[in-house]
């Protein structure tokens, strides 16, 4: 009896359900992807899935195109999101909180519903669906994830740093380029992680907003898996995981503690 009480009173015990969940639904599938990716159809170890990817022009092209779209989306999000975050950070906290709320509110609606609404909007305005619509949809969906971390960093920035720069002779523009912007980099990095990574792997937005005319890498993976090409699909997923991993590594190396400052979570 005493042992049981002791067991349940330990903090470690309480993390067990989540650890189990993580193991079954996150770690195991990831391992499965790795195993499948390096397996031939007959079950033996092979690199043939990766060879297929390199030699099959179509998958490779989709892959490069997807990264291109993700880069463009991220860039547009930075260009639109930074000024928005900057203006927000200058507002009174109470006002800013309401506006941030308005930015985040649409996020509570399912991404498919939002995208279908976008399709309807383009229809209504008789605008063609396609690449432009795709980028619009991506930016529309992911912009809040760029604004929020940047806003967070700007808002927490020690105001005396700005005053110190002014005091040392910096014009308002120099204050921005030499102090505010460099110090908001952790927020931008967080924003990139929140936007770039999900955009590489989306497929629903691409399908709906381009009437299935443009394929993104996510779509390719989905198609392969749907068609029973488990090993090839796993290999493609594996490649994407590596790209995401590399992005994290690249952006995360900036500064351990400042990266946390801008986190959305």
């Amino acid at each position: 009896m005493g042992k049981l009480v002791k067991f349940f009173s330990r903090r470690r015990t309480w993390s067990l359900p989540y650890v189990l969940f993580l193991a079954v639904f996150v770690v195991a599938p990831l391992l499965l992807i790795m195993v499948y990716a390096f397996q031939a159809e007959d079950g033996g170890f092979s690199l043939e899935n990766f060879e297929k990817f390199i030699h099959q022009r179509e998958a490779m092209n989709t892959f490069i195109y997807s990264i291109g779209i993700a880069l463009i989306t991220t860039l547009i999000c930075i260009l639109l999101g930074y000024p928005a975050a900057y203006i927000l950070s200058k507002m009174r906290t109470s006002t800013a909180r309401v506006v941030v709320m308005l930015f985040i509110l649409p996020m509570w609606i399912n991404v498919l519903v939002r995208t279908l609404a976008t399709v309807a909007l383009f229809d209504f305005l008789t605008l063609p669906l396609g690449e432009g619509a795709l980028i619009f949809g991506m930016v529309y969906n992911f912009l809040p994830f760029m604004i929020y971390p940047i806003y967070n960093v700007l808002q927490k920035m020690d105001h005396s740093l700005i005053e110190a720069a002014e005091d040392l002779g910096a014009t308002p523009r120099q204050v921005f380029t030499k102090v505010v912007f460099p110090l908001s980099m952790p927020g931008i990095v967080s924003g990139i992680m929140m936007v770039f990574m999900p955009t590489i792997s989306t497929f629903a937005i691409a399908e709906l907003l381009t009437m299935n005319n443009i394929k993104l890498f996510g779509t390719t993976i989905q198609e392969n898996i749907n068609n029973g090409m488990w090993h090839y699909g796993a290999a493609l997923s594996f490649i994407m995981l590596v790209i995401i991993g590399l992005t994290t590594l690249f952006t995360g190396s900036d500064d351990e503690n400042s990266a946390n400052d801008g986190g959305l979570l």
Partner: peptide, 16 residues
């Protein structure tokens, strides 16, 4: 401030 002939030492240092 940036055109005044004064410089300030801040309480919380305010180093960049």
């Amino acid at each position: 401030p940036h055109e005044r002939p004064v410089n300030t030492v801040f309480q919380r240092y305010a180093l960049f």
